[in-house]
Design a protein around this nucleic acid. Structure first.
Lengths: 332, 332
DNA sequence: CGTAAGATTTAGAGCGCTCTAACGCAATTG
DNA sequence: CAATTGCGTTAGAGCGCTCTAAATCTTACG
């Protein structure tokens, strides 16, 4: 009942174990006759090579370990596709472990991957802290995708989020807005850069920045906007930390009797699935996620092969996806 | 530069390799003194057990292989969380491979998992056909989650989709609707059951079913509704194949000057992320995804341990999540 | 004290595969 | 025809670990 091994196949085909190995790795120095015999035997027995044995013998695995902050998040999904496409090209398998938005879980995931002897680690939006990342990259080449900060020891692929925020501001100003409020991401890792980008852009255009504390979901947006309505003046445009916050802004504004984009324009960030929905149709800052995934693989594999030691940092340019949530301000 | 092995640790701690093994598997029959010595040596060397060697020696892996139809789809993500939670309880690791909506890719993923000697296979919304599934379950216990049909040889975890559709109809009828149109899922695997549920429910309530061909995204909904507006009469309620189609209905209806739910009520299916957004607030049929994931693990692991041979089928009950996209029909 | 029972520790084989070195054999060559 | 070459094939060691059986060390008791 236990699975057939090379030994079994060899016997059946009337050859040595070594020859079966050669056939399985389709070596060129096997006669056509024997190759056929071996393949036939393997087929009949339902033979399947044992990857653990192979990895052990070869002392390499041709496998990459990827950890995703949160499988739920469609932003990361896109990165995964990029990673897989590139890994395919290089003949590597990608094993995915779910971080579950939890540093402790991620730490265990790193451990699992290392025990599996993955040849590189791809961390997508990790919650891990610097020490964890240093420790990991001491063992195996590591690349971090889409995390604002610098990652000591690891390669980093990001987009320039300051620039992304500036794109949003610029778009609104070109439409004629001058009173633009930013709802920030609170403690979120990307919040700092986006806020800074917003602030710089506003100042350089001679406008006064107004930043409200937000967060990363709909409820946070609601709180911020209720606050605006009650104690502050309502701006003509809102630049939200991300699409979800922007979605919250949309519904809260409408609940308050304000129309988007007629009364208030709204811009999001990330160009997630949400923004694309017709019913939302959010103008938003887009990050080239697929490309980020691809570059992550290239970078880290190139690091293996050329054994470069200095970590690289790649900063891609964000773009703006204009949809129906922005328009010129109502003529006063 | 190569990683330390048990041998290395043993030398450093001044004990035998076997003792290190015992410590690593925290056996109770090791003296405290040696245990400490070994742990210290391991720590200092940064020792990490090689899972491939262990799996090879043990002839088992304590690893489960999961294949997800499409990482993008948030519906599946929730299932993943359920699977992981349950697998944790049993001390199994879960390796995830992305099917990428493509049967061929899935087939390769199955192969990879089998070569990794996973002890069971969890297929979430697979695109594979019956033969593939039969072949896989001949090698390793297999459970299929969220796929309408019967899966020969494999365990199956689904919800009763006919019943889900009936819930939607019933809700609308209770609100007072009688003219309810269904936009179906075209070739989608779940379409048949949902349509049938709709039709039966309508008939049993003495209402005339009207089914339009839809699909599984926004554009499909738009086509169907434009059709309704132009050639047919507009109903007072629409039951869509899934949330995305419902979202498409929402925007198309509004573009046509109809208000939801004042003029037309809309019900979706799946209770995805979209439905929850405040701005959408879709009434929708909910499947207990987390529970489905958990049951998948329980079922398949119990199958390993009790070596049951007959495949099981578990059909969970869907529920209705009522939100703001449904209301009584406008009084005529 | 001697020794049996129990508690710790270890030697060594084996898991399924790859890889190096060597082997057998036919074809080629001087 | 002996020697060389080269192709196809194979023996056998070794990858890092677990596991069984046996060795060694303690402890306790008569």
């Amino acid at each position: 009942m236990s699975r057939p091994t090379m030994e079994t196949v060899a016997e059946r085909a009337g050859v040595s174990r070594a020859l079966v190995s050669l056939v399985m790795n389709n070596s060129s120095k096997v006669s056509e006759a024997k190759r056929q015999a071996v393949l036939r035997a393997a087929e009949q027995l339902g033979y399947r090579p044992n990857l653990h044995a192979r990895n052990l013998a070869q002392a390499r695995t041709k496998t990459l370990g990827m950890i995703i902050n949160d499988i739920h998040n469609p932003f990361f999904a896109e990165v995964v596709y990029g990673v897989e496409a590139a890994a395919d090209d290089y003949g590597f398998d990608v094993l995915i472990l779910n971080g579950g938005r939890d540093a402790e879980r991620e730490r265990r995931a790193v451990e699992t991957h290392l025990q599996f002897q993955v040849e590189a680690l791809i961390l997508v939006g990790p919650k891990l802290d610097d020490d964890d990342i240093i420790r990991a990259s001491a063992v195996v080449p590591t690349v971090v995708v889409a995390s604002g900060r610098d990652n000591p020891g690891a390669d980093t692929i990001t987009t320039d989020e300051e620039r992304g925020a500036a794109l949003a501001v610029q778009h609104l100003v070109e439409l004629g807005h001058t009173d633009i409020v930013h709802i920030d991401g609170a403690a979120n890792i990307s919040s700092r850069a986006r806020s800074r980008g917003y602030e710089k852009a506003m100042r350089s255009l001679g406008l006064e920045p107004r930043i409200l504390r937000g967060g990363d979901d709909e409820a946070d947006a609601e709180a911020a906007i209720v606050n605006l309505a009650e104690t502050d003046s309502m701006p003509t445009a809102i630049f939200a930390f991300n699409d979800l916050v922007a979605a919250g802004a949309l519904s809260t504004l409408e609940a308050a009797g304000l129309r988007v984009p007629d009364d208030v324009s709204v811009v999001g960030y990330d160009n997630t699935f949400i923004a694309e929905l017709n019913h939302m149709s959010l103008t938003t800052v887009n990050q080239p996620r697929h490309q980020m995934g691809q570059l992550a693989i290239r970078t880290v594999l190139e690091r293996i092969e050329d054994d470069r030691t200095e970590p690289t940092r790649i900063d891609l340019a964000p773009t703006l996806s204009v949809r129906r949530s922005t328009a010129p301000p109502r003529k006063a």
